[in-house]
Design a protein around this nucleic acid. Structure first.
Lengths: 239, 239
DNA sequence: AGATCAGCCTTACGTCGTAAGGCAACCATA
DNA sequence: TATGGTTGCCTTACGACGTAAGGCTGATCT
């Protein structure tokens, strides 16, 4: 209280909130020190009193996303309490995925960072606890963590994402694939067979909920088999 | 033959070869139009007579890597001819992985591009052919492709890569984890249990051959189960 | 010999991250 | 109330980046 300040003073938190809003709206490329400052009604260099540079800003974004994941996942698992390990892990991963869908820039940012955000340790601790509680050895649980990979944080490795805003040339891509069907018969046949509900006919056209959950179940099935054994059913093929 | 030219003329190929050499040696951040030109004994703008800008250069790098993968994978599968679908896919994926190990910058570059390199269509056609030949439906084969994700191109989704050159603080990290063991008991226990042969004790410490193959086998096991069925063993958990 | 042209260079612009230092409003103290 | 420090923001400036526009040079062709 008291007389209001001439303007709300800057702070690390205010900067991060504005940065997330900016990146959600216009993509990671729009996040510039100058632009962020402008959005805050301030000059670029003022940000340096609250953030240790651009890299620090990006680290802050990552920390924020991880925190959002942890919150969502904890809540989701609370709601799914009492289930078996599959159900509980599913709840966590799908909650994480919901966060990622809100922040499409997050996967690329996460995978580009070279420092591990502090929050993920706790997150993995939670996953690990579920696995151990589910009867897995530390050995298998460790490998399971690796196998989950980015799925644990809510996103699939979409090796080639089709760029936002290229949706209208559906029949153009279809024609292209038809032209290639001579050299790529299986691919053309598969796309033809699968093109019933998909609207975006590129190779990366369906990181849908279905694909995400299918992969998850595939891994869970494999893990279930491996739970007591030394490894997967056929860990080695003869050389 | 004839009198040697004053200097070897520039070309798209020479530029790409130099770019790959530069990036292999000093990382993707060192790849600058000016720097690349300097390596070629030329001015930056000269590159624009052979390449359509920086993005085009990166596209060229991606195409080159994909071509290398395709070559290696084709050869590997030839050597493994006659095997079952698992063996043949394994050969391809492990060959791709060998390529990635030669170009550590490739995964990040691949996942950051928004256009699909032309060569991957043929690559996926080959994988698809193996799956169909192995008795899978187009439906399951399609989902398998998604499930493989980046594994098909030879790299695991290493969400947090520990930055090159941070190897010496092994016991520092160990001490840190020991300090955290109170709050992260399972994680600490797992690391302690698994820290027999690993030398780089961070969360991302082991994208080793073992983890890669384990994940692969996990997926193969799951797929084997799903081959005739409509999906994984327990595709849905009760809501 | 003169014209054409590919290949390379020079110069310059706008944008980026950020180092260095200035200035004005606030607070505690006397 | 005067004073001196501190905090918070701004101004200016530098070097690096990608690249647009246009100039020069030497090989090739008629």
């Amino acid at each position: 209280m008291g007389a209001r300040r001439r303007r709300e003073p800057l702070s690390r938190d205010r900067a991060l909130v504005a940065a997330i809003a900016l990146v959600d709206a216009e993509g990671i490329a729009a996040l510039t020190m100058r632009r962020l400052a402008a959005d805050l009604g301030v000059e670029a260099m003022s940000l340096y009193h609250h953030l240790p540079g651009k890299e620090g800003l990006l680290d802050g974004l990552v920390d924020a996303v991880v925190a959002e994941i942890v919150t969502a996942a904890d809540q989701a698992e609370t709601e799914a309490a009492g289930g078996n390990w599959r159900t509980r892990l599913r709840s966590r991963f799908l909650a994480a995925r919901a966060v990622m869908l809100r922040h499409p820039w997050a996967p690329a940012l996460l995978t580009s960072r070279s420092t591990i955000p502090g929050g993920v340790y706790g997150y993995y601790e939670g996953i690990l606890a579920i696995l151990i509680d589910g009867g897995f050895s530390y050995r298998i649980a460790h490998r399971a963590l690796h196998a989950f990979g980015s799925l644990a944080l809510g996103f699939a490795q979409e090796v080639f994402q089709p760029a936002a805003g290229a949706e209208v040339d559906a029949d153009a891509a279809e024609a292209e694939l038809a032209a290639l069907s001579a050299q790529l018969p299986h691919l053309a046949a598969m796309v033809a067979a699968e093109l019933h509900d998909a609207t975006d006919p590129t190779l990366g056209w369906c990181d849908s909920q279905t694909e995400f959950e299918f992969t998850l179940d595939l891994l869970f099935d494999g893990l279930e088999q491996a739970r007591g054994a030394a490894g997967p059913a056929a860990p080695r093929t003869p050389a």
